[in-house]
Simulated scan of single mutants.
Amino acid sequence: MSTESRFTLDDRLPEDYFTTTLHADVRHGLSSRPRTLPPKWFYDKRGSDLFEQITRLPEYYPTRAEQEILTRRAAEIAALTRPATLIELGSGSSRKTRLLLDAFTAGGTLRRYAPLDVSAAALEEAGHAICRDYPGLRVAATVADFETGLALSDEPGPRLLAFLGSTIGNFDAEQRRAFYRTLSRSLTSDDVLLLGADLVKDPATLVRAYDDSAGVTAEFNKNVLHVLNRELGADFDPDRFDHVALWNAEHERIEMHLRSRTAQTAKIPDLDLSVDFDPDELLRTEISCKFRRESLTSELHDGGFTVRHWWTDPADRFALLLAVPN
């Protein structure tokens, strides 16, 4: 079969999704204190390119650590799960996924890859590349926001749902509870969850991973202001903000902030909104929760999942786990 006939793209987002969601997130996050913005607005084309650079920085270990585990364990995961469908949430470029696709296609069970992402362009590009490189595979891509509901098609089972990159760490405890409940309702007893999670470690190592010496993460963080300027007609001056990465010991998470250098006002005409910043006031742009085995296993159990396998890289920096619905 041709590449075109094996690739489908189902866009389930409303036509005004990005405008409506951006307006709501910015109005809510910047009208309250402490001021916050969700990290999904980092990822325009420039932001995605900057994040790809971050994954190759010496300080940023999570991508390499997860890839080490996948390299060592993909064949074992394939033998344990034998999926007919691989679903991936927030698939992006699907780069790491190829380690799983190689193992699953070698195992002879995989028939379909079902990536889900908010970016139709990323899905289109990755989907056609995977169809080209895996001639026996169908790619059924879905444009959707898994944070607001999980839109799974009727894929052949058993299904393995992969949520990699420790993206789960961008959710606070309450958001994770809701997410696990949504997942457990969407999966059957034959399905399996493959989850990547960054682990608690020396705070200095963690802070360096989010505040690199080359300043790439600082540019990535400030990119959200460029997005607001372009999409909402705002007049943020990124040079009047400093990038800050902090370790929150109470919640065991890294927090990324933009700190206002001076008293300043940013105008956002599309929202008829003015935002006054005090000197040194923080605007939180991301949380990245870090996990311990006992507590993560416990919260997954409370959310409807039993952890069956737990693997780490040789340095115990990152975990990859298999869990099944209770």
Rank of each mutant, 00 (worst) to 15 (best):
A209I: 12
L228V: 10
E250T: 15
Y210P: 02
F236H: 10
T265G: 05
L228C: 11
L283W: 04
L225W: 04
F236T: 10
D278C: 12
V200K: 13
V216T: 15
G215I: 13
R293T: 11
E250R: 14
I287M: 11
E219A: 15
E219Q: 14
P203E: 11
E219R: 15
S213G: 06
E286G: 07
D276A: 14
E231H: 13
L225I: 04
A249S: 12
D242M: 02
L246G: 01
I254S: 00
G233F: 02
R284M: 15
D211F: 03
L271E: 04
A245M: 06
T262Y: 13
L283H: 07
P269E: 08
V244C: 08
G215R: 12
D235L: 03
S288N: 08
G215V: 13
I268Q: 09
P279I: 13
E219M: 09
V207M: 05
T217E: 15
L225V: 04
D278V: 08
N248Q: 09
A245C: 06
I287T: 10
K267M: 00
L228Q: 11
L228G: 11
R208W: 07
S288Q: 02
D212T: 03
F291L: 01
D202K: 02
M256K: 00
V227Q: 11
L273M: 15
K290F: 07
M256D: 02
V227G: 07
E255W: 05
N248C: 09
L206R: 01
A263E: 09
R230A: 15
L258R: 08
R208E: 15
L282P: 00
D212Q: 03
A214F: 01
T265N: 04
D211R: 05
D202Q: 10
E281C: 09
F236L: 11
L206K: 03
R259F: 00
N221K: 08
T265D: 02
G215E: 14
D237T: 14
N221T: 13
R240W: 05
W247D: 00
D272C: 12
G215M: 12
L206A: 10
P238W: 12
A209Q: 11
F220C: 06
